[in-house]
Design a protein around this nucleic acid. Structure first.
Lengths: 343, 343
DNA sequence: TGACGGATGTATAACGTTGTAAACGTCAAG
DNA sequence: CTTGACGTTTACAACGTTATACATCCGTCA
């Protein structure tokens, strides 16, 4: 049987509350008493029962993190960042995945999947603003990677539009003029919309047409989706001289198709991805990518949740995280190779 | 304030326990009563307080899953499998990562990181048998991916030695004779030892020397480690005609180095990885790999935990999960390409 | 000397739930 | 009619913790 405060109290010959005081570092305990109780705690191997503590305090010490999918290394790395940031504050992370499906995202945001949590960090894909309006749950919610929800909740994001524009601008700077976008969701994904918008805006700003024939919609966001989208574009007979992909796995899927068809990257087609996952650093042609500061995003998200838990009833915060464009072989101009991984 | 059983009971004009009975689908409740109570539940929007339930029942409905690192897609995919399997039994998964460091693994196995869990699924790397012997914790523990711990705990694994032998046999079948192994840990990692052993046994069985000059040890298991190891082997002047890597990321890192040095895969060097991660399906040269049945592993792990929770004090179980060798371009003989991803 | 105040320890009541045992009907058999 | 059996509901006591309010002790100051 597990040992409880009662057992320790009996063993030390003091009251339960005194033991509790020692455990919680209560100020007014004499060193002698603290010593004596601690001895009993060690002797019996007492460890607090969190369920009881939670019941009493109304806090669980658990934050839920709901991501679209773990298979995408970007989210896996983000999860790692959140877990570490939470651990630094003695919080523990409950992980869930939504598949990026609106229905699942709603379920999670309503707290139906996990009902023992102090706070929720959600990275939505299809979720709509209205889905959050009737949220009965009162646990703090922090949104990740989004930008256009109205400001009822905290959210952490990078500026997707600006980042997409930077990517396209980089391609334009290489002299590319036919720039395809891979990974639209036909309005069903907020982040995809923002990145398409950035693509469109930058082309327009450069006086070029934003040709819808160069936008490929996909169902998912994996390698296979990128490959299929690339194939579809090529099969229409179009030969873009650059591709901007919704994320790195799709970019890599696209590169594979180009490789199969004998098209060279970057000579024939330059490619920029998004997320800067490790995989892109080691592809046969290393991948230029928009690199969000994942560590910062994870840290900020946890801090937002904890701040709300701390009772600060402040205005919803909207925090921009950093990003930068990391240039690699897939958009190499005439300059020498940077960022050579091996050796 | 949250609504509790008491509130519902008052609203419906019945006792607390009756409401509890309705909530828990207790058998002996008249349909009329059930109806009436349910109406109050709906009216007030009652949702059970899990902390209280947990305190009372001594169960939390949470399983912890501790993995070396999420950045490795194999573990990310495994995590997804476990989360889904747990959800099917109304369990929720608390995720932790150990970095594969023995110290962290011990901490986790002792329950110091998460103290609210019903069971623990741990995928150890450096953990030693003795580290588990003084485990005070009494929550069920299931070990993943291991084989050589003594049988005090359940474990789910594929037969690493046999799988490694199959990989090497495949390379031998292609006529390769100088087969390097990348990713030894100099005895500090149980799974690495098993895979090296498989490599050694199969070579010996084929009457070939198991040359230690062709074994490269690494610190981590990422792309960069694989790349560095491959470089090191090549810099000794050796020119193996095949490489068997501890896992896919390392294999891909190695391929990158070969690519940089102008060595062709599979013509000059054939490569086999381990884990069959999606990344390998879309590399410029798609990667042959040992493919463990991740879904089954996740499912079996959850079932083992729940079985023990169900009070079955049976003997520790040792379950073998399936695996198969998936052949792709990196070991292509003269036959036509199989498994072409794009299009 | 006696009252006061602060520091220290304790008894007790919650937190919201479920298991146990007992109370209350109702109905059939004796 | 009584008895017993069964089906349904209820009162109460846990689970292990912390907050509150109170008791005790000691030293200090009027």
């Amino acid at each position: 049987m597990r040992v409880s405060l009662k057992d320790v109290a009996a063993h030390a010959g003091v009251s339960i509350k005194t033991v509790s005081n020692v455990v919680n570092n209560y100020q007014h305990v004499t060193p002698a008493m603290r010593e004596r109780v601690q001895r009993s705690i060690d002797a019996l191997g007492y460890r607090p029962n969190l369920a009881a503590r939670h019941l009493r305090k109304g806090r669980t010490g658990i934050i839920a993190l709901a991501l679209p999918e773990l298979g995408n290394p970007y989210f896996a790395e983000l999860a790692a960042a959140v877990i570490d940031a939470a651990a630094a504050h003695d919080y523990i992370v409950l992980l869930d995945h939504t598949g990026g499906r609106r229905e699942q995202e709603i379920l999670v945001s309503q707290g139906f999947r996990a009902r023992v949590i102090d706070g929720l960090i959600l990275s939505p894909i299809e979720l709509e603003t209205e889905d959050l309006s009737d949220r009965a749950e009162n646990v703090p919610l922090v949104l990740l990677g989004e930008r256009d929800y109205d400001l009822q909740y905290d959210h952490i994001a990078i500026d997707n539009v600006a980042a997409a524009r930077a990517a396209v601008r980089h391609l334009l700077g290489l002299g590319r003029r036919e720039i395809a976008f891979i990974g639209d969701r036909r309005g069903r994904s907020e982040p995809a919309q923002l990145r398409v918008r950035g693509w469109r805006e930058e082309l327009t700003a450069a006086g070029l047409p934003a040709d819808d024939g160069l936008v490929a919609a996909t169902e998912g966001w994996g390698h296979a989706d990128g490959a299929a989208a690339m194939s579809r574009i090529l099969e229409t007979g179009r030969r873009p001289d650059a591709v901007f992909a919704y994320n790195d796995p799709m970019a890599i899927g696209a590169m594979r198709v180009l490789h199969e068809r004998g098209l060279r990257v970057p000579e024939d087609i330059a490619i920029v991805g998004f997320d800067d996952v490790v995989e892109g650093h080691f592809a046969a042609v290393t991948l230029t990518s928009v690199s969000p500061d994942k560590g910062a995003i994870g840290r900020l998200a946890v801090e937002c949740v904890l701040a709300r838990l701390g009772g600060e009833a402040s205005e919803p915060r909207s925090v921009w995280a950093d990003y930068r464009l990391v240039e690699r072989e897939s958009t190499l101009g005439r300059a020498a190779s940077k960022d050579r991984p091996g050796a």
